[in-house]
């Protein structure tokens, strides 16, 4: 039976999801807390919020800073990682900054953004950049810095110019890690956008969480949180598939 399940991974995945949702339903029935709704109540609220356009309106607001922030970090972060991977001086200068940034408590830093960028769109974009930049930059840097020595020696043997070596050898060799960084950066960007909406100005999906919590509508509050998990998971999975298709043919299912 175990062998049959292993042959069909979707069975195990479905069982895993059913188990978690079942545990949630049980937790809501106990109840764990009066603020902890049953899974079924949350799913009903989730459906209602899709049907009445609540999610569409909220995500339209959240998407703006998220897209701009991830796009800025996507371009700037990859370039920064590339330069750091190629130049030891820039690596010395930039690497500690991003390592420290990655380890820093972002929830404590996000409110400080308002001192410089105020309370508008720019502040939310900066929050997205703050969260997504370290992972994109560091992954790109590692991808570039770990280019196989044999490939570099080969390019030397063929007397390739510096630019040709970067374009033909270094970037393709690091592309897998760079794309993985972009995927993880998107997930971090989601966190940044929601944190900004919770801690700076309540808009979009962050406003849904704040509002439904304030009016004690816990099924809708949990449905809002669930929607973030669903949207982030779907986006990251789609990017992962794209990554496998473009850069890692060896990982594709036969």
């Amino acid at each position: 039976m175990a062998a049959a399940a292993a042959g069909r991974p979707w069975v195990l995945r479905a069982a895993s999801i059913a188990f978690v949702l079942g545990l949630w339903e049980w937790g809501g029935t106990v109840p764990v807390s009066i603020a902890f709704p049953k899974c079924s109540e949350t799913l009903v609220a989730f459906g209602g919020m899709i049907a009445d356009g609540t999610f569409a309106g909220a995500y339209a607001e959240t998407a703006g800073p998220l897209i701009v922030g991830v796009a800025l970090t996507g371009v700037g972060g990859v370039l920064a990682g590339l330069v750091m991977g190629l130049s030891p001086r820039t690596e010395w200068l930039g690497l500690p900054v991003f390592i420290v940034l990655q380890a820093s408590p972002s929830a404590a830093i996000v409110p400080l953004i308002t001192y410089i960028y105020g309370i508008g769109f720019a502040a939310k974009v900066f929050a997205v950049v703050l969260l997504s930049a370290p992972v994109i930059v560091l992954n790109s840097y590692r991808g570039i810095a770990n280019t196989p020595r044999s490939l570099l020696e080969m390019s030397d043997a063929f007397l390739a110019s510096r630019w040709k070596r970067i374009w033909k050898i270094v970037i393709p060799a690091g592309s897998g890690l760079i794309f993985a960084g972009l995927r993880l950066g998107l997930a971090q960007g989601f966190t940044g956008a929601v944190l900004a909406e919770l801690l700076i100005t309540p808009t979009g999906v962050g406003d849904l969480i704040t509002f439904y919590r304030s009016v004690a509508d816990y099924p809708r509050m949990f449905a809002s949180i669930l929607s973030i998990i669903v949207v982030a998971s779907v986006s990251v999975t789609l990017l992962q598939r794209l990554e496998l298709r473009l850069f890692r043919p060896e990982m594709r299912p036969a």
Partner: peptide
């Protein structure tokens, strides 16, 4: 109706013209 949490944040926004 625009939402900005925190009286001190709204005060700063008012002074900055936001």
């Amino acid at each position: 109706i625009s939402y900005v949490e925190g009286s001190e944040v709204r005060a700063t926004a008012l002074l900055r013209g936001n």
